[in-house]
């Protein structure tokens, strides 16, 4: 901890401390942070902390099949006798990984396009990029994702590509609006009058000032990406059995409702908690930045 602290300057440490103070005054943000940290912890360490790591795959143990929640299996087992709690932990792993991969593709590309369009505001570059963005935004996103997934072979990878394709325009919109306003700030004009080149101005003057809102949106989006991914696997177009994605666990379990309710309810609750956690955290970060801007 001390070594990280010494990497930052006095000024940065002071502002971190101040931000933490502001953030921690809102209990909901803290709830969000704890939820997200717990989920992330379970996702990363699931192979080691899951009570029944073998439940990950094609494990079958009919002696344990369809057991209701008990001390041995807090969330019950599914029809093959796999422990649902363990599968939820693995589910976090897949869903988070999917969200991270999607955002890793979407955020840089969307931001880059928005940045360029915003910097060349009013020129043909702006028109071309933003009209394409608008076209993507005009198509209902879930319909597009379903169409793409149905067209290709249903798999986790293809569903990720589909979600990415419908998600980048939001980042290009956001980066575009931020850039269009920041480019009129005097410090950008000063850099232009000095003669700095456009790439320098875009990436070194404008981009660092866009990062906070983009980061906030990313945090909020993790939840939504997981929801869309789960929707896709729920309708059978995403991750496939036996991969323990939360969405297809809900889908599979729903066939046995209401008798074996735990097969659906616990994975569904896991999805809900994930989204809630990321949204609360994202709101907390947004409030933090909003206050700082005054």
């Amino acid at each position: 901890m001390k070594s990280i602290g010494s990497l930052l300057s006095e000024d940065q440490r002071e502002s971190l401390k101040r931000n933490w103070h502001k953030f921690s005054t809102n209990p909901l943000s803290i709830v969000g942070l704890i939820t997200v940290l717990t989920i992330t912890f379970m996702a990363i360490f699931s192979p080691w902390i899951a009570p029944y790591p073998q439940s990950w795959g094609r494990w079958i143990d009919f002696s344990q099949a369809s057991l209701p929640p008990s001390w041995k299996h807090p969330c019950g087992t599914d029809i093959y006798g796999r422990d649902i709690l363990s599968r939820i932990m693995f589910g976090f792993r897949y869903d988070l990984l999917m969200a991270v991969c999607i955002l890793a593709m979407v955020v840089p590309s969307g931001t880059f396009l928005g940045l360029v369009a915003g910097y060349y505001h009013g020129t043909w570059i702006d028109t071309v990029i933003m009209r394409i963005t608008d076209i993507f935004l005009a198509i209902p996103s879930l319909v597009l994702a379903l169409a793409i997934c149905a067209l290709l072979e249903p798999s986790l990878f293809n569903s990720m590509m589909a979600v990415s394709l419908l998600w980048w325009p939001w980042y290009s919109r956001l980066a575009y609006s931020l850039t269009s306003s920041i480019r009129n700030e005097y410090f950008v004009q000063a850099a232009e009058l000095i003669g700095a080149n456009p790439l320098y101005i875009m990436f070194r003057e404008i981009l660092p000032n866009c990062l906070s809102p983009i980061f906030t949106k990313m945090t909020l989006d993790v939840g939504w990406v997981i929801l869309i991914g789960s929707t896709l696997s729920f309708v059978g177009l995403g991750a496939q059995e036996p991969m323990p994605a939360l969405g297809n666990m809900v889908a599979v379990g729903s066939k046995y409702m209401p008798d074996y309710w735990w097969m659906t309810i616990f994975p569904a609750l896991a999805i809900a908690f994930t989204i809630l956690g990321f949204n609360l955290l994202g709101d907390g970060i947004r409030d933090l930045l909003a206050v700082e801007e005054i």
Partner: peptide, 14 residues
Amino acid sequence: QMVFQDPGSSLNPR
């Protein structure tokens, strides 16, 4: 060269 009106916005905060 030029010096602008609003010193708050003429220096990049980052």
